[in-house]
């Protein structure tokens, strides 16, 4: 399998950096590009978890933030792009002393307003509908806006 297309800034760099991300010592900023392909999200997941650990999160918190990011990427694929492959997704990871901020951009359909309502968890026996609950519950802040025909979802995980 080809590695997910990704790049540390500059954005036009060859898309091979995802598997190197875990080698970077305490990266404060990463800019990754991938396609709307679930296998690319799966390839990225261990690297995200490593980034969380390098940022100082314990195993449980690293799992929580990684899961929230994966859910956000899954939403890009499943909802923004309606399952279309090869569409662009960008992820920017910024770590400061106070927080990890993850910005995820896609060029798909706008997010429905109800997605930002954390008070609508799925029924316990429902197959779907848990992604947004995970995103809301396992991050400290979620914001969304449209910019230049792109969805911009920002997840904030406080470190202090």
């Amino acid at each position: 399998m080809n590695p997910p297309t990704s790049a540390q800034a500059p954005a036009q760099a060859p898309a091979t950096a995802v598997h190197q991300a875990h080698d970077l010592a305490h990266p404060d900023h990463l800019h990754l590009r991938l396609h709307s392909d679930p296998s690319e999200v799966a390839a990225l997941q261990p690297n995200l978890q490593d980034l969380c650990t390098q940022a100082g999160l314990d195993a449980m918190d690293a799992f929580k933030l990684t899961t929230a990011i994966v859910e956000a990427l899954n939403n890009c694929i499943e909802h923004a792009y309606g399952g279309q492959a090869e569409k662009p997704i960008e992820l920017q990871w910024t770590r400061s002393a106070k927080a990890i901020v993850v910005a995820i951009n896609d060029e798909g359909q706008a997010l429905p307003a109800r997605a930002l309502d954390p008070a609508t968890p799925a029924a316990t026996d429902a197959e779907c509908g848990r992604g947004w609950q995970i995103i809301h519950e396992w991050t400290h802040a979620v914001s969304y806006h449209r910019k230049d025909k792109q969805n911009v979802l920002i997840l904030t995980y406080n470190l202090s």
Partner: peptide, 16 residues
């Protein structure tokens, strides 16, 4: 060691 909501959906569909 890792599961997302799609994984949960697989298990719920199995339960049904």
């Amino acid at each position: 060691s890792f599961m997302d909501s799609s994984g949960l959906a697989v298990i719920v569909s199995g339960l049904q």
